[in-house]
Amino acid sequence: MRWQGQRLGETDAGALPGMEHLGGFVQSVTTPEFAGVVFHEVLAKSALNHVPTASGVPFDWTVNPYRGCSHACTYCFARGTHEYLELDAGHDFDSQIVVKVNVAEVLRRELARPTWLHDPVMLGTNTDPYQRAEGRYRLMPGIVSALTDAGTPFSILTKGTLLRRDLPLLVDAAREVPVTIALSIAVFDDVLQRAIEPGTPSTAARLDTVRAAAETGFRVTVFLMPILPHLTDSIPALDDALRRIADAGATRVVFGALHLRPGAKEWFLRWLEREHPELVSSYRGLYPGAAAYASKAYRTWLAKRVRPLLRRHGLGGQAEDDSPRGERMPGLAQRRSTAATVVTTARGRAAASAPAMLF
């Protein structure tokens, strides 16, 4: 296996297939504090990723300091992006983490261009910016400072409790630009959470992070996503989740059913066959063939189940389906306009004509 035999500080020019064309590979690093994880440090050529309006997502610009994620969420929709690097969407996604070590410096240069229109930027759309690697590399403070100094609004979506480290910086940033914070908390049963999200902080720790952010003045949104058919969609489970979210001080909830995109689908179904074989046939019915989304009938049923519970607990909120594709969703950076924005990237082409990249 090409990854075996690497040691702390050693470099291997062939260790990261698929990245050679970027010309920015620095080294592959292992360290005892992150057993089983290899960090591939690269020099990014660009930091801002433009997302075309046609993609249907409710934001135009993203920054992702990492690729791959040690949170190891079995259902993570971003797993398929690792295959672009000739890595697999399963274990490699969890353990082979690409680190853009110069992302803050590159971002600052891009934001300083006269063509930058200060559109909102979204952090955390592909892999988590506050995953465990952030404790080692500390990329987010530089990113937050660059966005703030450039007068650029931004939003953060994370499962990571390391966000609390940066709350003072985020409070200062919010005095200068609009800043929104959202926590992703999908599973409130501790046993299931450890099984399906083995690398994430506990649900209780994430709720404490919601509370800490709310106490500093942020109106925190919780993404109750994905809701897992037959595992987390019962009324008692949803009621408990929303009660705990409200008690933590969140103001809004965005909820939605599980997505199973290519890469994630195969990995999740393998987990399901091992842990809950009695549910496999039901899931294959809900997500037949190459379908990535649960049926419209299931999503409608789920929304009717959740909405009364939101009202019971005094929470604002909406289903993921409630926002027409491409329109604003609470907790995410807002599109400036539907018109194409042309910004020259470090790759030397108009970002508006670039392919959709969420990573």
Rank of each mutant, 00 (worst) to 15 (best):
A291E: 15
V342C: 10
L48A: 09
P355Q: 02
A350H: 07
V101Y: 05
F255S: 06
T31E: 06
T200R: 00
L279M: 14
V101E: 01
P32N: 07
V171Q: 14
H82M: 15
P153A: 05
S281F: 03
Q131P: 02
V177L: 12
P114H: 07
T209C: 12
H82K: 02
R270N: 15
A319Y: 11
W3P: 15
D166W: 01
A146I: 07
K100T: 14
E105I: 07
F268H: 12
K45H: 03
W267D: 11
W271G: 13
H118S: 11
T232R: 05
R312G: 08
L170W: 04
L272S: 15
R274S: 15
P355E: 00
A351G: 02
M140F: 01
P32F: 11
Y130G: 06
A333H: 00
G18M: 11
D128T: 01
N64P: 01
A112M: 14
M1P: 15
R79L: 03
R261I: 07
T148M: 10
P168G: 00
L162D: 03
V177W: 15
I156K: 01
I97C: 04
F34R: 11
L87W: 03
L242T: 12
A173M: 02
S234F: 10
L139Q: 10
A264H: 08
V187R: 12
T209L: 12
Y84F: 13
G9T: 05
N126L: 08
L258P: 14
L231Q: 08
L260A: 14
Y287R: 14
I196M: 12
R2V: 02
R274G: 04
V280S: 15
E176I: 08
V306K: 06
D208I: 09
A150K: 10
H313L: 03
E176M: 00
T200N: 08
F93C: 04
R328P: 05
D88E: 05
C69N: 01
M19T: 02
G24F: 05
R347M: 06
K296I: 09
A133P: 00
N102P: 12
I143N: 11
Y287Q: 08
A291Q: 14
L117K: 09
P141E: 12
A195Y: 00
I97R: 02
R274Q: 10
L286I: 11
P198C: 12
A356D: 13
T31K: 10
V29H: 12
S323V: 03
C76H: 13
L169S: 08
R194G: 06
P17W: 10
T216E: 13
P324V: 02
T11D: 00
Y293H: 12
E110L: 04
L228Y: 11
T127Q: 02
G151Q: 01
S323A: 14
R325M: 15
T344A: 02
M140I: 05
D190Q: 01
G23L: 01
V306E: 14
L183M: 15
Y130L: 13
L111T: 06
V38S: 15
V343F: 02
W301L: 00
S234P: 06
S234D: 14
L87N: 08
P153H: 02
H71M: 00
A186F: 01
